[in-house]
Design a protein around this nucleic acid. Structure first.
Lengths: 226, 226
DNA sequence: CCTGTATAAGTACGTCGTAAATGTACGAGA
DNA sequence: TCTCGTACATTTACGACGTACTTATACAGG
């Protein structure tokens, strides 16, 4: 006798489909995600997925949504900080960690930002700027300044997540045949890069992330009042 | 009698293939780029392209390469600035402008950064950090500090380019049927976003980009000596 | 003029996203 | 308890894609 998950109705749900897709992407990369493969992983025929995502693009949107959801879950789990600065740290860190957990999703975030108009973005994606702007407004920051601050923080968080993740990939676990050739080219044509590559491979991590964020907030005059 | 470009040998070259591909992507978006379509645009059979790009991924790498090349061309066209700060502005701006010229390539940049190990990145991609690091070293900045500065500048340039380009897409040229519905949702659930959307749609542009860059450099203590 | 080599074209295969039609199991009302 | 509408899953099929493998062509050097 088959369990509920194994036969008939109710085997799938939007959440199951999306989380399985996200796991697949985290594990094997974006290119490995196909409707057929995902269906196979769920023990289902490909077309069944189209009840939960209008098409593949919508499914990819769902992955972005999931990453932002994770950010909000982390934020909702703890209490809001009292200082603006501390709260901005908390929000940015939540996003940064979600991004680090699902690096493969970042290219999707980028292409969606460039493509999907604000008005029809998924709720969790909109909720993040709303959260930031509301907090800044509560602190007495005027509209244009708040927008500038939000823009700076999101640009920094996204950019730093991308750049710093690179460090993982640059780590010297390189065993490919073309490696030594590449190293030689590096030594010859890019001496600075060559000598600093080990430092670069370490990555900045959260301290450097927060330091940059603080520098930006300083520049914008977003400072705790006391 | 057919011209040289129209028959026989020498119709194609890596440069022709790549620039045509880039034009196609700029015009119709990443998804519209297929080997077959590109070949059609070049008046050639699809397989001919494989003499200039090992496969489609390599062709996409070529697009990133082209964007960085454009950055270097802009930089090589003018004289180096004497102050570090001014030179960092010049370099970052060159990149920012190239990114704005080819927004569709940004998702590719991101996925390559996350995927391709440093050692085998295209020359123009390596040349940019080399340029920055060399300049900082010349100014007496030590290795780890230079890396931090480079990381901050590249994260900011990439992130701000992505975030600020979004403004274009968010502009209120929305004529879709679902628009008013979306607007209503916005008003109800995201009041801050709703009221600040017009400000947001304007984008920060180059002044805001440079202001953020300065804030980061200030935070790192990268200051002209005089 | 001939020939080798660089380049383009042709053919073919497996995979992809997904439209359309068909089948199936559950839950509510008789 | 039965039945039937509806929500869900499957089947089948198509065109487009990336690209391996094979064949044709045109130029350059001997």
């Amino acid at each position: 006798m088959p369990t509920e998950r194994e036969s008939g109705r109710g085997r799938l749900s939007r959440e199951i489909v999306l989380t399985t897709a996200l796991a697949l992407v985290d594990r094997e990369g974006l290119d490995a995600l196909s409707m057929r493969k995902l269906a196979g992983e769920l023990g289902v025929e490909p077309m069944a997925l189209y009840h939960y995502a209008e098409n593949k693009d919508a499914l990819l949107d769902g992955l972005v949504e999931l990453m932002f959801d994770e950010t909000h879950q982390a934020l909702d789990a703890g209490p809001e900080e009292t200082g603006v600065r501390a709260e901005m740290h908390r929000i940015a860190l939540a996003f940064y960690r979600a991004a680090n957990t699902h690096p493969q999703v970042l290219p999707l975030v980028v292409s969606r930002l460039l493509t999907v108009p604000l008005v029809r973005r998924p709720a969790p994606v909109l909720r993040l700027p709303e959260r930031v702007l509301a907090r800044l407004a509560a602190e007495g920051v005027d509209g244009p300044s708040a927008i500038r601050a939000y823009r700076a923080c999101s640009a920094w968080a996204l950019g730093f997540a991308i750049i710093d993740l690179r460090a993982v990939v640059d780590a010297p676990d390189e065993t490919d045949p073309g490696f030594r050739l590449g190293l030689h080219r590096l030594r010859k044509d890019y001496p600075m890069l060559r000598s600093l590559a080990p430092v670069m491979a370490e990555g900045g991590g959260e301290p450097e992330f927060l330091a940059g964020l603080d520098a930006l907030l300083d520049g914008l005059g977003i400072i705790d009042e006391d």
